[in-house]
Amino acid sequence: MKKKFFYSLLAAALGTGLLSAAPASAFEIKSRDEAPADFKNILQDFRAFVGEERRYLSPDTIQAKQVNLSDLTLKFDYDPKVFFIGETADIYRDRLDFKATTGSQVETGQIIFGDTSCNTGDRSFPNFSQFCPNPNDALPGKVAPYKPLNVGDWVNLGSFQAGTKLDFQLVANDINGGIYENGVKAIFGLDQALNPDNLQHAIAYYYKDYLVLGFEDIWGGGDQDYNDTVFAIDIGKANARGAAKIPEPSATAAMFAIAAFGLMKTRRRQAVR
């Protein structure tokens, strides 16, 4: 009875503003040196999914690589992890957000990376320019998560039970104030129908039990290179292998080789960044 009375008083205090609920703690961004061994062993492989700025992707390729949203629903309990792979966004400095839905409970507004540009100080990393052709210095007064990233920086999203739906959003050029069209901010998600311009802004690849997502950050599709922010998600082998469209190993190898050696050839398009 006393406990019930206490919670009633607490709820009332929160409702009247006498107390304020503590904000959700920020994700801890860890370095690639602290990453799991299986990720570090294949980190260099992921550069093929970044590619070149304004690379050409055919409409058929873009459509074929739409994100299968059901693949982001966990079939088994797991601690998902998100790894920054690279970006080619030039002057745009985007923000990556995360949302999880478990039954009727929704966790929203969680920022994974506040500035998805690459850190100029990371140039000693082998093949850095193939991950990050347009690195940036940190803006004055900014601290993590609002600082440029090193390739392979990552976060543990926490523990989630089977049935949880994971979702990600890109806030275009957020650290510089965002991008607006007719008063609407450019926030692009995985579900095309929910995007403010009703266009596809993400494509997906599967590689060795990782889901790799690439975002296009320009309103209206821009240059459609889908590598303005690229990240890999570890949802666990059991969840990944239960996904609908995981290729067979030979198909995966072929896809990676094609990506690495030029299927996605550069075609310069006129696009204002």
Rank of each mutant, 00 (worst) to 15 (best):
M1P: 13
K3S: 14
K4R: 06
L9T: 15
L10M: 14
L14N: 03
G15D: 12
A21H: 08
A26F: 10
R32L: 05
R32P: 02
E34C: 09
E34H: 08
P36T: 10
A37Q: 09
A37I: 06
A37R: 07
F39I: 12
F39G: 09
K40Y: 04
N41W: 07
I42G: 12
R47P: 05
A48N: 00
E52K: 10
R54E: 11
R55A: 03
Y56G: 01
L57M: 07
L57E: 03
S58V: 02
S58F: 00
S58P: 05
P59E: 09
T61W: 05
I62W: 02
K65D: 02
Q66G: 02
S70I: 10
S70A: 15
L74T: 02
K75M: 11
F76M: 03
F76S: 07
D79F: 11
F84M: 13
T88A: 10
A89R: 11
D94M: 12
R95I: 03
Q105D: 15
V106M: 15
E107N: 05
T108M: 12
G109N: 15
I111Y: 09
D115I: 07
C118R: 09
C118P: 06
C118K: 10
N119W: 07
G121H: 05
G121R: 12
D122V: 03
S124T: 07
P126N: 05
N127Y: 12
F128H: 04
F131V: 03
F131Q: 02
N134L: 07
N136W: 08
D137K: 04
D137L: 01
K142V: 01
A144Y: 03
Y146W: 08
N150A: 04
V151L: 03
G152L: 01
W154H: 13
V155P: 03
N156Y: 05
L157K: 01
G163V: 00
K165F: 05
D167A: 07
Q169D: 12
L170M: 10
L170D: 10
V171E: 09
V171R: 04
A172R: 05
N173W: 07
N173S: 14
I175F: 10
N176T: 08
E181L: 08
N182G: 06
L194H: 06
N195A: 10
P196L: 09
P196I: 09
L199C: 07
H201Q: 11
A202Q: 01
I203A: 06
A204N: 06
A204E: 14
Y207G: 14
Y207S: 13
D209I: 12
V212L: 10
I218D: 13
G220F: 12
G221H: 03
G222Q: 08
D223W: 02
D223R: 01
D223E: 08
D225L: 03
N227W: 04
N227A: 01
N227C: 00
T229V: 14
I235F: 08
I235E: 05
K237W: 02
K237E: 08
A238H: 11
N239W: 01
A240D: 12
A244V: 10
K245D: 11
K245M: 04
K245T: 11
I246S: 06
I246K: 11
P247I: 01
S250G: 00
A253R: 06
A253W: 02
A254T: 02
M255V: 04
F256L: 14
I258F: 06
L263I: 01
L263S: 00
M264T: 12
R268F: 14
V272I: 11
V272M: 06
R273M: 12
R273F: 14
